[in-house]
Write a protein that binds this DNA or RNA. Structure first.
Lengths: 341, 341
DNA sequence: TACAATTACCAAAACGTTTTGGAAAGAACC
DNA sequence: GGTTCTTTCCAAAACGTTTTGGTAATTGTA
């Protein structure tokens, strides 16, 4: 049986009120008493019962994150870094992280509903935002704080972090042109994703500015997995007039694209260029190493937590809509530093 | 403000007792009343307050999982599958998943202590078990249910799943011998890990049985990351008498090893063989594709959850110590189906 | 010395459930 | 008609905190 506040009170012949207030740092308890209380509580191994505290304070000190519904089993390095960032930052602030894995959209809705209604979480973090995202509208109505990576176009006010890759793709496409690539292709994800729309738009814009061809027919939708990337790349590479530079919505997709290119017997970096997005640690160890636009996933997650925690504390956010500029990492998959095989 | 049980009671002119018992399926409420209660509760959007329920029931309906302390930022596909499995199965049983990310061992201890003391979780799931694991001794003392992937040698009774790779490594080594490889090497993880000790022992045993050389000097400790695998493989491949077949403790490590072998200009699958462990989806898309021992990570996670949930429900486990036999996936990295470049 | 202000403490209420120990009303039995 | 079961309901206690609204004792002020 865990120690309760009552037992600490009895031991010291004080009231539970005093114990509680001493530990919470109220000014109406003598400094000596406070020290005594703190010491004894620690000695006795007292830890406040979370349920009781939550019930009384009407706070759960917990932030929720729901892994988006996916058809296939995911295994994304991205998410691990993301979760690590969330967890670390939350721990700093004394919050816990509740995670669920949505299987279907219905299931996902239920989860959100349940967490919000039962007050299991004080706030939420979202990613994989869609252009029109019911989650954002739903949470907006419930007025429960949340922060997102990427913004939907719903008319709801909430803090978010947005990646601005327009400059990055400009750099990438000029690099590709210098390397002699002519025809761009894009392997995206589900089209309703903000990430898909944004990256596609940036690439179009960059292709225009730099003077590379980008045939709309060379835009494919995959599913953000390496297998999805593999299938899409295979399809596009075996088409009549394939692109010679394939930009992927993320590294995971690019891993599959590399596979497909190898399979076609192409010399990657020379006959075909391939690039990813995210800058995951794995992208350094592929064969050949993957050119990618690097974003600080871990730090983004921490920042999102900070946004929610501050909102919960009633603080105003100095910068509720942060921008992140990805850094271009030029590696071998687009022709940099020819291998010395 | 969320709806409480009181409001449902008032609406129906019943006592809160009856509402509570109706919803919980007790037999001392008339069937008609129960239906009415259930319907009205749903209509009004009533969801029980978790904190209140937990306080009264002394159960949190939450299972905890702490990402092991790591020095580097992890990005392991393994963990995502694992977490997905945990989450899915927990949802089925009405439990939630609390996740934390330990940064240091001290921090990890604090987390366990806090969760247990404050009754934040009813049970826990552990992996990356060490040969002597303080977490297992600690949780054993607290008698809070938990289940683990791999067993420590601590004298504590708890349900677990163990991978038995002896047969798998026998198959793998005979395959390697057939392919003409002579000298085995092993890139493991931290030596205190059960996984490291087991896999090393299996490989030794298999090498003996099959008649392949395995020089103890060819055993290295990496850190279960691709970069760690890269560095270790580079070291061993540039040593005076390098092994020509490198078995890695997991796929992630093997990714790095592939990189190192490419860098040395070796033809993988011919001049050097490389194998992983886990069978992650990514292992199919490396260049060349990775031979690996496949374990059903997702299902293992689900089974672990089941073990804990059943224990919490007071059910006896029919099989508290399950064994998993990995399946050998022979791919190109050990010479199967030469590439048609 | 009397009065006000400050300091240090506490009893009781509240948070929203579940559970305990009945109790009233009707049915069943003799 | 009186007893004993059943059935269906409920009032009150309990879970372990935090918070509210005090009170007594001490200090300061006139």
């Amino acid at each position: 049986m865990p120690i309760t506040i009552h037992e600490v009170a009895k031991r010291l012949n004080l009231s539970i009120t005093t114990i509680s207030r001493a530990l919470d740092g109220y000014s109406d308890v003598a400094e000596d008493t406070r020290q005594l209380v703190i010491r004894t509580a620690r000695e006795m191994g007292y830890t406040p019962n979370r349920a009781a505290r939550q019930l009384r304070r009407k706070k759960s000190e917990t932030i929720g994150f729901i892994l988006p519904a996916i058809t296939q089993r995911i295994a994304k390095p991205f998410f691990m870094e993301f979760i690590a960032g969330l967890g670390d930052e939350l721990t700093v602030h004394g919050y816990d992280l509740l995670v669920a894995n949505a299987t279907t959209e219905q299931n996902e809705r239920d989860l959100y509903q349940r967490w919000v209604d039962s007050r299991k979480v004080d706030g939420l973090i979202l990613n994989r935002v869609s252009i029109n995202d019911w989650r954002i509208r739903f949470l907006g109505e419930q007025n429960i704080p949340f922060a997102t990576l990427e913004r939907s176009s719903d008319e709801v006010e909430y803090p978010s972090i947005q990646v601005d890759g327009s400059e990055g793709y400009l750099q990438l496409t000029s690099h590709l042109r210098e390397m002699g690539f002519k025809q761009l292709g894009f392997i995206g994800g589900p089209e309703e994703l903000v990430n898909h729309a944004n990256r596609l738009a940036w690439i179009k814009q960059a292709a225009d500015r730099v003077g590379l061809a980008f045939d709309p027919a060379h835009t494919l939708s995959a599913d953000l997995t390496s297998t999805g990337g593999y299938l899409a790349a295979k399809k596009t590479l075996t088409s009549p007039h394939p692109p010679d530079a394939i930009l992927c919505i993320d590294d995971e997709t690019a891993f599959g694209a590399l596979h497909a290119a190898h399979e076609q017997g192409l010399v990657i970096g020379q006959q075909v260029g391939i690039a990813g997005f995210d800058g995951t640690p794995e992208s350094l160890h592929t064969e050949p190493s993957l050119t990618t636009l690097d974003i600080p996933v871990y730090d983004i997650a921490k920042e999102l937590v900070l946004m929610v925690v501050k909102t919960l504390a009633g603080e105003a956010l100095t910068e509720p809509h942060k921008k992140i500029i990805p850094a271009l990492l030029v590696r071998e998959s687009t022709g940099n530093q020819r291998k010395v095989k």
